[in-house]
Design a binder for these strands. Structure first.
Lengths: 222, 222
DNA sequence: CTATACTGTTACCTTTAAGTTACCATTACT
DNA sequence: AGTAATGGTAACTTAAAGGTAACAGTATAG
């Protein structure tokens, strides 16, 4: 699941991004209308969070522009709670509306609800003959379903989120075993187990370790 | 378009009804939980507006009961704006939430949006030789009708709503036994009972548990 | 009032995820 | 070349999670 966040308040944006990413939601971030327009071309989003008051104009105009080309549901964010503002937002095609200040938890819930109807395929990834649905927890290699352990799932999700970039050993350890004593062997075992699960026979290797840099989930080892 | 309004404040209710009907929305009205339960049997609604604080209990419990058979989207209405109240409401299956005081214009907009999304959702599902009709509460496996206990219905409805994604044990427990002390055995028993009900002889297993992640209703190789 | 069904409870069994150990392979650096 | 350091694999072990069956109290229906 990937969303677009357009917000000029850098602090708020950063908090929101951290929170959303902790929930497994990928976030593209723009801090102005112009930037947003540049970022979103050719990109599919499951939802859009749009601040109304932006440095170079109002989010409403952007929403109206998008309504034709982009079907992603829009949630407006603003400090203004007057009725006419809300009505204008809904008229511009908003599917939801939050007034600042708000709790990040609520934002996440509402975003997830919005995206649910729209996403369908959004949590689905393909890599070579490997297909992964993070939401449904379904992973297949060349048609055959693979069963992953809990630890392996968290690892796959992590690797996938960064793919094709490598993820450092330190980060993997912190993600899979948060607040826990971990020794190097646990880490090594997990990797072997995931590897043997993902590749049968002479299938292409998808887990590449780059010495001293970490592990990457990708096609070729460059 | 017809909706159900459950609200004990008669003045507010009357205002809302007038407003909604002016918008061409038909409204069934109940002022208590008991009354609501009586009214809604066998009736189809495009959306439900539910006050949380009602004379004879909380709207949350009603929402949870309804989730089995009624797929209508629920908008909660309440004077309480605390985060935990909102989270509880969303956990109970709310799709939207408005805190009093609110503008009737906004209520109408949000109700229309909810109903619109809902109108394209199905209440009938097929999975392998299993067929489920949530509204009619009929479930069949390979032509033969299956009789499920109340608990089993809630569980099936829950699983179906998320299928093919797994539902966590925690969520199942909160849904089947809201606000109750639950031990792990009750959960385990419910699952075996549902399982033995759904699959006779050598039929395909449809309930799959993913260790540490929950239970999913799906075909094995989905 | 009896029979039936639902659900909580207990006891027991099976499966497996994951930590541990030991050993091998590869790379890198003095 | 020799020796750390790093990464990879296989095999063993066990605590925990999941699964089943049987019993009992309670509610429900006829």
């Amino acid at each position: 699941m990937i969303i677009l966040l357009v917000e000029d308040d850098a602090i708020l944006a950063q908090q929101a991004i951290t929170f959303l990413e902790n929930e497994g939601i990928e976030v593209d971030y723009a801090r102005s209308l112009a930037q947003a327009k540049g970022i979103c071309v050719g990109q599919h989003y499951d939802a859009i969070i749009l601040d109304i008051n932006l440095p170079d104009g109002t989010g409403l105009s952007l929403a109206q522009q998008w309504r034709d080309t982009n079907t992603a549901p829009i949630l407006f964010l603003t400090a203004r709670s007057a009725l006419e503002d809300k009505l204008a937002a809904f008229a511009a095609g908003a599917l939801d509306y939050l007034t600042k200040p708000f709790a990040l938890e609520e934002l996440v819930i509402r975003i997830k609800l919005l995206a649910k109807k729209h996403s369908c395929e959004a949590t689905h990834f393909n890599l070579d003959t490997l297909s992964i649905d993070l939401e449904a927890k379904i992973i297949k290699r060349a048609q055959r379903t693979i069963i992953l352990s809990p630890q392996q799932w968290t690892l796959v999700a992590l690797l996938l989120r960064h793919s094709p970039a490598p993820v450092s050993k330190e980060m993997i350890i912190n993600t899979v075993w948060p607040d826990q004593d971990v020794n190097n062997n646990m880490y090594k075992s997990l990797l072997t187990r995931l590897r043997t699960n993902l590749t049968k026979d002479d299938e292409v290797e998808l887990l590449h370790t780059l010495k001293k840099q970490g592990v990457a989930l990708r096609l070729a080892n460059d």
